[in-house]
Design a binder for these strands. Structure first.
Lengths: 191, 191
DNA sequence: ATTATCTATAGATCTATAGATAATGC
DNA sequence: ATTATCTATAGATCTATAGATAATGC
């Protein structure tokens, strides 16, 4: 696929993607105009459409870039402490967090072009987190939970903390709070 | 304030607010056009603007209505089991949940008119949840947490679960998962 | 030749203002 | 008299298409 494009074009596409990330972070997908993205890379809106034929195509590319971004490298088994590091890393990149928090928030509305993407993604992430939790804590977690039932909580904490942190970066210690949650899971009364 | 308006006008305003909740749930605030809201109550867009002079004024009214909605009645101390009931209640009102999940998601973008509202609100909610947790579990929670440190986690779980549930209502048992989290908090290894 | 970019523009929206008309309340 | 609603419309946008021109790669 990338072999069908010139290196020149690939570079432009990457520039445009970066700009799209920024503008979506600032204004959401609906609020992000093609003209605003184009201006950021020194193009006209029509020039941008040469590289991404529709606004939705640009969104899809943004979502794919993200997917590639935080995919676990094959062979590398995800571990809980890596997840903590990921949260710490995110806390240094508010723009990235904001882009996807904005998109997640929008995606719940009807017919949003990212809705299906997020639905599938969360399903996969819950399953993946269940495995991580089982590898770390075994079959029994505090409170009588199983890894499968704790997984949606883990995901919810990550997302929910992001919103609180974005709204009040100084008032919310996102990595600290995530660590607290892991402590809660590890406080085991399991036999 | 309501005394300065006629009963007729109050009724209309209430109808418009209801319609605004619906349209915001479906399309977010940015995607919600005044015309779409107006049409739902059988008015023209200009007729609507007689009752709410700007789109932002309508949003503010929506946020205030929500605040009134889930405010704890004075004198009634909030308890954790009531919170569980609230989540169960929410699970029967996807529209309401969707309206505020959409607004929260949008509010993290710069200069969004609901941003300050949510910032203040989350600050207050964390404090309130801290008190609830202290009343329920005392000063020491599992994992060495304090009520104050568990509060953002409780809020994060509620919000995060809402997004997962909105994206996949059949695949995510929101009240069940919330109950699981409370079990985790109550699984105490406190002395 | 092909790719990248531009100008021009169609066709939809969207919010908000101005001012006219209809309905209601003293 | 005041309130509620409408028609008309200004002034901004926004996405996307058509077609011309400039730059690049064989």
């Amino acid at each position: 696929m990338s072999s069908t494009r010139t290196a020149r074009s690939e570079g432009r596409r990457a520039e445009i993607l970066r700009a799209a990330f920024e503008v979506i972070a600032e204004r959401g997908y609906r609020g992000a105009s093609l003209a605003a993205v184009a201006e950021r890379v020194g193009l006209t809106q029509q020039g941008l459409l040469h590289h991404f034929p529709t606004k939705e195509a640009l969104l899809v590319a943004v979502l794919e870039a993200r997917d590639q971004w935080d995919a676990v490298p094959p062979g590398h088994r995800l571990r809980l402490d890596l997840l903590g590091s990921l949260v710490e890393y995110n806390a240094m990149r508010p723009g990235l967090v904001q882009t996807f928090s904005a998109l997640l928030g929008e995606s719940v509305s009807e017919g949003h072009p990212a809705r299906e993407f997020f639905t599938h993604r969360y399903d996969a992430v819950r399953e993946s987190m269940g495995e991580v939790l089982r590898a770390e804590y075994g079959d029994r977690l505090p409170g009588g939970l199983t890894p499968e039932r704790a997984a949606p909580l883990l995901v919810a904490v990550m997302d929910g903390l992001q919103y609180q942190w974005l709204l009040d970066p100084d008032g919310v210690d996102m990595p600290g709070a995530f660590g607290d949650f892991l402590d809660l899971l590890g406080a085991g009364d399991a036999p």
